[in-house]
């Protein structure tokens, strides 16, 4: 992952609660075996409606999505994150996120900014009044800023470091090999395993 200190750009507004990963990237595209090519399939069913926000000229090139609570609930499909990233989104601002979606986002350079509903609404109103509004997500300071808005957001230290330092998380865990081996040596004998045929 490329290290990133700040993310900034224009935003698209989709104020709806409980948007599930089935809506973000529908199931029929889960048969693919690579990580690429999901961007054009983002919100595939909803995009069939010409009035859908991502079909509007103002939303083209948006890099931030402003949306409702519990965004990304439901299925664990990481494809939903790949679709958002593939479509150019670098951050999502919402009151809260689905747990597995949040974990997936942190591994793919998609910054999730959880701020109070009032802040989400304030940002949405400003973007609707001025679609060219630039929003900045400052990862280093854990702060989201736009003209007239500045709000801190909570970010687990580890996720913050993944962004700032572009770490290989698996590589870091592999460096703890001695600890893992020591743990394995004290596991009880009844633990599940599938004998080699």
């Amino acid at each position: 992952m490329t290290p990133r200190k700040t993310l900034s750009g224009r935003a698209a507004v989709l104020l709806q609660g409980d948007i599930d990963t089935d809506a973000i990237l529908p199931k029929q595209f889960l048969r693919r075996i690579d990580r690429e090519g999901f961007g054009e399939l983002l919100f595939f069913e909803w995009r069939k409606d010409p009035a859908f926000v991502l079909n509007q000229p103002a939303a083209q090139g948006a890099r931030i999505l402003i949306t409702g609570a519990n965004f990304g609930c439901g299925s664990s499909r990481e494809h939903a994150v790949w679709a958002l990233r593939g479509c150019g989104f670098e951050a999502v601002i919402a009151p809260s996120f689905g747990d597995i979606f949040a974990s997936n986002a942190s591994k793919n350079g998609l910054m999730l900014v959880a701020v109070p509903d009032a802040t989400v609404q304030a940002l949405a109103r400003r973007v609707e009044a001025n679609p060219a509004l630039e929003i900045t997500v400052d990862v280093e300071r854990c702060e989201v800023r736009a003209e007239g808005v500045s709000e801190k957001f909570a970010l687990p230290n580890r996720v913050r470091r993944l962004f700032l330092e572009g770490l290989d998380e698996i590589g870091l865990t592999l460096a703890d090999d001695a600890l893992i081996t020591a743990y394995e040596q004290r596991r009880p004998g009844w633990m599940p395993s599938i004998p080699k045929r």
């Binding site: 299925s75 664990s76 597995i100 974990s103 591994k107 793919n108 698996i170 865990t173 592999l174 893992i180």
Partner: peptide, 30 residues
Amino acid sequence: DSHTSTHGAFGTIAFGIGTSEVEHVLATQC
């Protein structure tokens, strides 16, 4: 798969993960 919570019925800590975490577990068992 998000419905991995099913296995909790046995007194098991069981949860769904995404593909990057699948890779992490394959490589590290952690």
